[in-house]
C-alpha cells in the first residue's frame, strides 16, 4: 500500500532519496538527506529534512481531490508560516508544491538514547518504560518540559490558532524546548469552545498514552497554559483563560463537543 504512494511522490521528486517516517490518514511523512536547492540552509539541521506528502485519494472525484490536496497543503503552510512569524516554535518551510501536495520542511528533534525521535511521547516513554524511573518521570526536568508545552499551547490559543490534533506525538522536544508539528487539522478560532476541545484532546491523549503519571503531566501543562495567559504580552488573557477553562469543564462532562440532536 505504501509502495505505490511512494512511487506517486517519487515522480515529483526525482533523484531524491526518501525514507518513510510515518503514515497518517491524510499524508505520508518522509525524511531525506538532500535539500532541494541549497546545501547550507539557515537551519539547525543541514543534513536531514522532512517531506510531507498528501497522496491522491482514489475515492474522491478528481476535481474535489485536486482542490482538497491543494487547499490543505496551502492551509498547512500558511499556518506554519504564521507561527514562525509570531515566534511560536514550529518547523520552517523550505519549499512547497501545492498542486501535488508536497511540503519540504526543516527536520526537528534529536535522537533519544534508545534511537527514537525526541517527541514528548517518546521521551516520556523512555523515562517511564525504558529507564522505569519514577523520580525522573516526576522530577523537575519533566515538570519544566510540561510547563513549557503548556506555555506554547497557551501562546497558540492566545493568537486564536487551534492545533486540532494535539497528542504527545505532535510535540517535539529540541533541547527541552517544545515545538509543535503536524498542522493538517489546524484552524483559526477565537472561540473558547474550540480551545477547550484542543486541550481536551491533549488531555485524553496523555491519559491513554501515559496513564500512569498523566495527572501530573496534565497538571503541569495547565500550569504553563495558565501562566502565559497572565503574561502582559496578551490583552485580556485572564478573561480568555477563565472562559476556556470553564468550557473545558463542560467538554469533559459531555465527553464530546456537541450534544446530539437526535
Amino acid at each position: 500500500m505504501t509502495d505505490h504512494i511512494i512511487q506517486q511522490v517519487q515522480v515529483h521528486l526525482p533523484n531524491i532519496p526518501l525514507e518513510v517516517v510515518s503514515q497518517g490518514a491524510e499524508a505520508l511523512v518522509f525524511q531525506t538527506s538532500v535539500h532541494p536547492y541549497y546545501s547550507k540552509p539557515c537551519l539547525p539541521h543541514q543534513d536531514k529534512f522532512i517531506i510531507k506528502f498528501r497522496p491522491r485519494k482514489p475515492y474522491r472525484h478528481p476535481k474535489i481531490d485536486a482542490a482538497i490536496t491543494k487547499n490543505r497543503t496551502i492551509g498547512e503552510v500558511k499556518f506554519m508560516a504564521k507561527l514562525t512569524k509570531l515566534g511560536i516554535k514550529a518547523p520552517s518551510v523550505i519549499l512547497a508544491d501545492f498542486p501535488n501536495g508536497i511540503i519540504w520542511m526543516e527536520y526537528l528533534g534529536k535522537k533519544l538514547p534508545n534511537g527514537d525521535v525526541s517527541s514528548l511521547k517518546n521521551w516520556l516513554w523512555y523515562y517511564e518504560k525504558v529507564l522505569a524511573d519514577e523520580s525522573l518521570c516526576l522530577g523537575s526536568e519533566v515538570q519544566q518540559a510540561c510547563i513549557n508545552v503548556g506555555l506554547l499551547i497557551g501562546k497558540l490559543h492566545l493568537n486564536d490558532m487551534i492545533h486540532g490534533d494535539l497528542t504527545s506525538s505532535n510535540i517535539l522536544l529540541e533541547d527541552s524546548e517544545p515545538v509543535l508539528i503536524d498542522f493538517g487539522l489546524s484552524s483559526y478560532s477565537g472561540m473558547a469552545e474550540d480551545k477547550a476541545v484542543d486541550l481536551y484532546v491533549l488531555e485524553r491523549a496523555m491519559l491513554s498514552t501515559h496513564s500512569k503519571y498523566s495527572d501530573h503531566y496534565v497538571k503541569w501543562l495547565l500550569q504553563g497554559y495558565e501562566q502565559i495567559h497572565g503574561s502582559k504580552e496578551f490583552r485580556s488573557g485572564g478573561k480568555k483563560l477563565v472562559e476556556t477553562l470553564r468550557k473545558l469543564d463542560e467538554v469533559r462532562l459531555r465527553g464530546r463537543k456537541r450534544s446530539m440532536l437526535g
Binding site: A25, E26, K57, Y59, R60, H61, I64, I68
Partner: peptide, 9 residues
C-alpha cells in the same frame, strides 16, 4: 460526491 467524500474522510 462532496458529502460522501467527507464521510469517507
Amino acid at each position: 460526491e462532496v458529502l460522501f467524500s467527507m464521510l469517507v474522510e
